[in-house]
Simulated scan of single mutants.
Amino acid sequence: MIDLLYKIPEHVAVIMDGNGRWAKRRGLPRVFGHREGAKAVERTLKIANDVGIKWLSVFAFSTENWGRPKEEVNAIMSLLVEYINTKVPHLVKDNIRLRFMGRRDGLPEMILESMYEGEKATEKCDGMNFVVALNYSGKAEIVDAVKKIISSGKREIDEEEFREYLYIPEMPEPDLLIRTSGEKRISNFMLWELAYTELYFTEVLWPDFNEEEFLKALYFYQSRERRFGKVTV
């Protein structure tokens, strides 16, 4: 089925929602949902790479997520360290570059060390880019960009120049955003970059997101006529 795909999006962004609900429905602690969610990341990463997507970005942890119970936050951070440390060799083997997007101030030292090692180990990979939004906020990204512009001394700037001050300036805007679990909002994710992105919402909880569900999202994207505000004749 993958061989039949055409019009492949260059950049797919994912809001991975529903880990907690997945665990709750099974009478399990929320951390079990996050662990199963990590497996869904692996599946999605493989499929994206197989079909030729150049950028895959996932919303792993928002600035608002610090308000969750401390035990859950600690479990998520430990799981992130474990995931980075164990999966980096596989990323290198598959020529996938790992990158992080978000504010690094306030992140635990163990996370920062793993992030640095992961980025360093994959920096020469020139296949797909795998972007993990960590301690990320779309509003914060815009504010941080404005602060950089002010510090540069610029008094005037256009949209293209503004892009240069975002967290990853060379990252293309997402062609497709996937959000799982039935929620229909973008939740402060890539507010600048999602201006003309196609939005796909599914009821499937993130831990259950598999190849079939990903292909459904890609087929949805292929059915869309992207006009970017223009009129086609």
Rank of each mutant, 00 (worst) to 15 (best):
I186K: 04
D50S: 06
R224K: 12
E161I: 07
N85G: 03
V92W: 11
V233T: 04
F228C: 04
L191V: 15
Y196R: 08
W55T: 15
G182T: 10
N135K: 05
S152G: 12
D17L: 12
K46W: 08
I157Y: 11
E160H: 12
M128K: 05
E141Y: 01
L80C: 09
R43H: 01
E164H: 14
L98P: 12
E113W: 03
A133T: 09
E141T: 01
G182I: 11
K184A: 10
G18R: 09
K124R: 13
E164D: 15
E156P: 00
E141L: 09
K87V: 10
E42I: 14
M1C: 05
K147P: 00
I53E: 04
K70M: 13
L191F: 06
L80E: 00
W206D: 13
F162S: 06
L5H: 09
S223V: 05
D158W: 15
V58Y: 00
P9H: 04
M1S: 14
Y6D: 13
I47M: 01
V132Y: 02
M77W: 11
N65P: 11
L45Y: 01
A38H: 02
R226K: 14
E119F: 08
P174R: 03
R227W: 15
V81N: 03
L166S: 13
E161P: 07
V81R: 04
L218N: 02
L166Q: 07
S62Q: 05
F209D: 03
H34R: 01
E109L: 06
L56W: 01
T86F: 06
V81I: 12
H90L: 12
W22I: 09
V31Y: 02
A38T: 08
K124F: 07
Y221S: 02
F209T: 03
E71A: 13
W206P: 12
R179H: 08
N188P: 06
A195K: 10
I76W: 00
E225M: 07
S187G: 02
P207V: 09
V58Q: 06
L112G: 07
S181T: 11
D175I: 02
E42Y: 04
E156H: 10
E198L: 03
R224S: 00
I168S: 06
V131G: 07
K154G: 05
D144N: 15
F228K: 07
D126L: 11
V51P: 04
A195E: 13
F214I: 00
E225P: 00
R21V: 11
G37T: 09
L28P: 05
V81W: 00
W206F: 15
R97L: 07
T232Y: 14
M1P: 11
E72I: 02
R43N: 08
I111L: 14
E117S: 12
E109I: 08
K148P: 10
E198K: 03
L91D: 01
E225W: 02
Y196T: 11
I8G: 06
E10W: 01
G27Y: 10
L45V: 08
Y6N: 14
A217Q: 03
W66T: 09
K216F: 04
L177V: 08
A145C: 10
V231S: 03
R99F: 01
I157M: 14
L98W: 13
F228L: 13
T180Q: 10
L5Q: 06
F201A: 05
L199E: 03
L56D: 01
E123V: 14
N19C: 10
N74V: 08
E173F: 05
K148G: 08
